[in-house]
Computed example of a mutant assay.
Amino acid sequence: MRKIVILSLMILGQSIFAQELALVKEKAKIGYIDKSGNYSVQPTYDSAKDFSDGLAAVKVKDSWGFIGKDGQMVIEPSFSRTRDFNDGLCAVERDGAWFYINKKGEKQTMPYSDKIYDFTSGVAVMKVGNKIGAFDKAGKVTIPAEYDVIKPFQNGFARASKNGQWGIIDTNGKVIVPVEYKDVGEYVNGVTWAQKEKSYGVIDGNVFTVVEGADKIWDFGNQTLTYARRNGKVGFVDKAGKWIIEPKFAKARAFNQNLAPVFEGGKWGYINIEGNYVVEPSYNDAESFSNDGLAPVKGKSWGFIDTSGKLVIPMEYDISISFGFTEKNKGFNGGVSRVKKSGKWGFIDTKGNLLGNKWFYNAELFHN
């Protein structure tokens, strides 16, 4: 019986930790709701940040501390400024000095850096003079400070530059794509784009293939096609650098669910991977499909269509005002979408139901 109770408590703890919460502001106070729309943390804070790595920074009087998802204070307020927890560590400021802490609030000794950077993919960038390197969570330097620029790591890879040339490195400093290109994109599933002298092309592994006539290529996403431009028109290329859909559109966005939004004749529609219209151009704006199988489309306001092109949620919302939204997080994320109506923010599910039947003065995306 005792083992069953302990196991149940462990499962409950894991469930709470895995639960995503969204920061919301009701009147003048900030709290956090779960995906049922109910408060997990009551709105009691004047200033607070999103959850990240299981903790959220909250301000009490003049100091910042961190709460867990049960609303209990985990790290007592004692910091003048904070970043977000990632990989179990967070950069904080106290008495004018920045340093790292762990989830117990203990100060961590790390290699010297002129500027403090957040951990991503298990490493943090360090700046020594005019050069950039990186170190891991144990404080071990994994990349000597020999680069001019290292962009934030994503899924274990980062764009890096030396002497005006760009390539891709991993968190151990291994060169994945040689640092010899004028520009390079994000490294996704072993593929990226690059510019070499005046030519644009695709790199699959570390082999560069020129895309005939291309003067711009966008990052690859969830599928093996990405969009590219030639002579002012946009089409789609594969990871071998071959034009799969000839450039004939004024604008385009990424494929997902085997559909991509394209702009032609002053309106947006959706094509399949053969380049044929599944949804004829009829919208003033359109975004890529999410993994939930819905895409935001705009008439006077925003609604959502399914992969057959059927409008399943009416066009009566705003979705992309402020908060630095990108194409990747507009619309549905994990079964809910952040929307605005009549000046208030809330969340709807894939059926169009308002979570908790409640609107807020402000709302952010759900985070772990």
Rank of each mutant, 00 (worst) to 15 (best):
K196E: 11
T224K: 15
D170L: 08
K140A: 11
F153Y: 09
I176A: 05
I132Q: 02
Y181S: 01
W166Y: 13
P152K: 07
S199A: 15
T224P: 06
G167V: 03
D170Y: 05
I168K: 01
D219C: 12
F208R: 04
E180P: 04
F153V: 06
N163M: 12
A138D: 13
W166T: 03
A160Y: 02
E186C: 10
F208M: 09
G133A: 05
Q223F: 10
Y147G: 03
V202R: 01
K140T: 13
I217H: 02
Y181V: 01
D204C: 14
G173T: 03
K137A: 10
Q223S: 15
W166P: 00
D148C: 08
N155K: 15
G190D: 08
K198W: 11
I217V: 13
P178E: 09
P178H: 07
A134Q: 00
L225I: 08
T142Y: 03
G185F: 02
I203H: 04
N189A: 15
P152D: 08
A145I: 04
D183I: 05
K140W: 05
K162S: 11
G185P: 01
Y147K: 06
P178F: 06
V211G: 06
V141Y: 01
D148F: 07
A160T: 04
G205W: 11
A138Q: 14
P152M: 08
G139P: 03
F220L: 09
P144A: 09
G213S: 14
G139D: 06
V188P: 03
G185H: 00
T209L: 09
G156P: 03
V210P: 09
Y181F: 11
N222P: 07
K198T: 15
D148E: 09
V202C: 08
N163S: 15
I176Q: 04
Q154P: 07
F157A: 04
Y181E: 01
V188K: 12
K198A: 15
Q165S: 14
T226D: 04
D183F: 05
K174G: 10
R159Q: 14
Y181R: 01
G133P: 00
Y187G: 00
L225E: 02
V175A: 09
G205F: 12
V202E: 03
I143E: 00
G201T: 03
N163W: 09
N172F: 10
K216L: 14
G139S: 08
V210W: 09
V141W: 00
K174D: 12
Y187N: 03
Q154K: 15
D215E: 13
K140G: 10
G201Q: 02
V202I: 15
F135W: 03
D148T: 09
G221I: 07
V179Y: 04
D219M: 12
V149K: 10
K182V: 12
Y187L: 08
A158W: 01
V207N: 15
E212T: 14
E180L: 11
E197H: 12
E146T: 15
K162P: 05
K216H: 14
Y147E: 03
K151H: 13
F135C: 05
